[in-house]
Nucleic acid binder design. Sequence first.
DNA 1: TTGAAAGCGATACCAC
DNA 2: GTGGTATCGCTTTCAA
Lengths: 340, 340
Amino acid sequence: MAKRTVSIYDIAKLAGVSTATVSNVLNSKGSYSDKTRDLVLRIAHEQGYVANFAAKSLREASTKTIALLTPDVSNDFFSTLVLKVEGLLRAAGYSSYICNTANDDEREGEYVRGLISRQVDGIVYIGGATRSSIRAAANLPVVHIDHTGSTGMKREVYVGNDMPQLSYDMTATLFERGCAQVALVSVSASLYRTDEHDQAAGYYRYLSKHGIRLDKNLVLEGPHRQTSLVEAAQLVGGCLDAGYTFDGVVALGDRVALGVVNALKERGIAVGTEVRVIGMDDSIYSRISSPAISTVRRNTSQLAERGVEALLAMLAGNRPAQTHVVVPHEVIERTTTLGV
Amino acid sequence: MAKRTVSIYDIAKLAGVSTATVSNVLNSKGSYSDKTRDLVLRIAHEQGYVANFAAKSLREASTKTIALLTPDVSNDFFSTLVLKVEGLLRAAGYSSYICNTANDDEREGEYVRGLISRQVDGIVYIGGATRSSIRAAANLPVVHIDHTGSTGMKREVYVGNDMPQLSYDMTATLFERGCAQVALVSVSASLYRTDEHDQAAGYYRYLSKHGIRLDKNLVLEGPHRQTSLVEAAQLVGGCLDAGYTFDGVVALGDRVALGVVNALKERGIAVGTEVRVIGMDDSIYSRISSPAISTVRRNTSQLAERGVEALLAMLAGNRPAQTHVVVPHEVIERTTTLGV
DNA sequence: TTGAAAGCGATACCAC
DNA sequence: GTGGTATCGCTTTCAA
């Protein structure tokens, strides 16, 4: 029963032709007679032949495999992107490795080293803020989707939302609804504090642009040591208990927003009227909350599409149209800002 | 700059030894002098050598790669399992492919065909109910974690909870809290209606065992054409609007339970007292709900651990201890059954 | 301790 | 239209 897997060589022998011909037929390359084709295909089928990808990869120096690096697939925003990216890659004939970096540079380094050894054709970073120090294989195509941090690779494309503008719009929404004192709540803030990716930047920009005094007591940042929901609730609770007041909250993330809403409700504060709240990601959390949480849709489909598009372009040897792709976002107002 | 990747052969030449020796040193196999070892390692390092996995795989007929097949990674229960399984596999030196089957047998078949060609060392099904018809490579080790359906493979292990017992316990919890008429709500019910995996079986068993008359009007099954949350709310709403009454609900899934709770709240029904509800999975949905939803913890860590354990055993050529592993579940009572 | 060489399975060049 | 053969990079046996 331990019959060795059937190879192209077996097919060749059975069909009485050469391996070259078999290869040609199987790949619809070169030329061969119809008779030969039918014969080879029939025998291959009869024998249950399946091409050995390892051999093909070795020969062609291409594995048709892409690595997906994300901090944590169990995070719904990331996993949605993983789902979509994988689907698009599969449609293009690629398989996807899944790698959970936990936002740990060292672990990411180990992954990348292994992935290079495994000859992946490209890498897609999805979310997070790792910073690989690997400079080997510097020519590997890399795409960053909603990912802060660069690699040493020469061919990399960034796809994401305009985060500063996004938080600017969140802040603007609250002030335009009549808020006078708007707090900022975030967890894992330190992770994302890089130049153009700074998620909080828009908050500060809005304030300074409109001559609103920044109250540092209203800037609540957690270290993300526990569930963002719980941490956010504690941050807001602590702020209120300390006697600070505000009538609007920019929450960097829907889970954060949900925690904020819970903390407010717990204290009998009318969310949406007394205090308005806006989250980010348009995830299930903002939709299942009651009251429904206003949020910002980041457009995961487009993020995935533009990212894969850029990757496929690079894989085809082309220079991608842009190295920095910005996907539009959209403010979705619900009860927590509309008040109804 | 297009310098060909450095191979074991390059190292051998530079070190003035044979490829056999280089291979031995790099893999800590065979014997060699300390001097040779140091020399080879130094040169390998200097040259930034990375082993070519394709070549190794071809030679060793093993790719150190496992495929994870799940209906949809963006589902939080599945993605949590994917996260944990991937972590355990990585620790054992394996990389993981991620494959989203959408519970579609045909798509799964395509995946499996490709995976066999890619010479994966094993397959882990995570959730869902696909039924592959591929019988090639019948000797591939396969593990099913919370997955209904078998393959044609000879070496397969099932890891999961005792679903009939689980729904039995859910039902029992409600009756023991004083409920008299308990409804059953599920979406995608038809998917899981196989022998030992039938998620609803325990409900029926409890009723018949306790001589409670089954009221078919209280068995609400949705086709899962939309978000389970919405669908569940509609099912319950429709039932109530039709004039049927009940004081307990067994919801097969936390998202389903949340939909039920929302529908009840919307109609001004006191959840936890007038009507008690219990969900399943102990996911974020049951915890963020207000009132907090009672549920059943299914123990994803153990599911992942036992699954990987069995897979690694098979990969090592051993017969796994059991072919059907049952992971214990635990009822977690919260407000929706306790009433407080 | 070390090395020569066969071979894993597929591709592709170049004769015929 | 077809086939012989070198080659991809690595492991492993067997001799030296």
